[in-house]
């Protein structure tokens, strides 16, 4: 097996989870209601913990220590999609992002549960169960607010239109798609996207928002190759501030 293809896959998944985990953690103490404060904080903890296990796999494949990889890279060395790095905005914006990303995340790990790369399949089987709770949370609120009143509907609609091109960027193809598919490591981004459209539209169709026309949106790409919005570097600076004070400190 060529490790480059596998590493690329692991890096983008881990980076997505670390960065969105960090964004979710910014809701700690700021949630519109206590339950949402706790929900976003818990999802942050899950995602950061899951990213750590993926960085451990990368470490076993010869990459640097998980903490070094998480805290010492610059924005252009990160492979996350741009969707996850955008500032939280208001609650509707964070909720729509959470809904769009977590559906893709769950489907990705469901597919990877059958990966030919057994260490990843083991993690994927575990993550799937954990992320199920994130999905239940997202779906509950989308259905609730998507059928509530004019203001909630207008806000969700606006955020959905704004985030749709970024969400499509989750599925930016890797240079190794054919190899990953033929070796049975992963089903590939295109197949994942098809499952995702079906999955998010099934929920949206149960709201006044209705199913979304994804083919009318153009994906914002580049994140997987290290091209990011201006928002990622300040996030990384803040996230790594304490670590960088003394990288050799023993915790």
């Amino acid at each position: 097996m060529d490790n480059l293809a596998l590493k690329e896959l692991l890096y983008k998944m881990a980076d997505d989870q670390l960065i969105l985990g960090h964004r979710n953690s910014e809701w700690t103490g700021m949630g519109p209601i206590l339950e949402e404060d706790i929900a976003f904080s818990s999802m942050a903890q899950d995602k950061v913990g899951q990213s750590q296990q993926l960085y451990i796999l990368l470490n076993q494949l010869g990459e640097a220590e998980p903490d070094t990889v998480a805290f010492m890279r610059n924005a252009e060395q990160f492979h996350n999609c741009q969707l996850v790095e955008l500032p939280n905005g208001e609650y509707d914006f964070s909720l729509i992002r959470h809904f769009l990303f977590d559906h893709a995340e769950w489907l990705r790990f469901e597919a990877l549960s059958n990966s030919s790369y057994e260490p990843l399949a083991q993690l994927a089987r575990k993550y799937k169960g954990e992320i199920k709770y994130h999905l239940i949370h997202a779906n509950t609120w989308i259905k609730q607010l998507g059928n509530a009143n004019e203001e909630t509907l207008a806000r969700l609609k606006q955020s959905l239109h704004e985030l749709a091109p970024y969400a499509l960027g989750i599925f930016e193809p890797s240079p190794y798609e054919t190899q990953l598919i033929s070796e049975g490591i992963f089903i590939g981004e295109e197949a994942l996207k098809a499952r995702w459209i079906e999955s998010v539209n099934a929920i949206l169709a149960q709201t006044a928002l209705g199913a979304f026309n994804w083919s009318a949106s153009n994906a914002i790409l580049g994140g997987r190759q290290g091209k990011h919005s201006k928002h990622l570097q300040p996030l990384l600076d803040e996230m790594s501030e304490v670590f960088k004070m003394d990288p050799t400190a023993d915790w």
Partner: peptide, 13 residues
């Protein structure tokens, strides 16, 4: 169920 997230990752409310 009020919320699938609680005081620790393994608890719901």
């Amino acid at each position: 169920m009020k919320t699938p997230f609680g005081p620790t990752l393994c608890r719901s409310i």
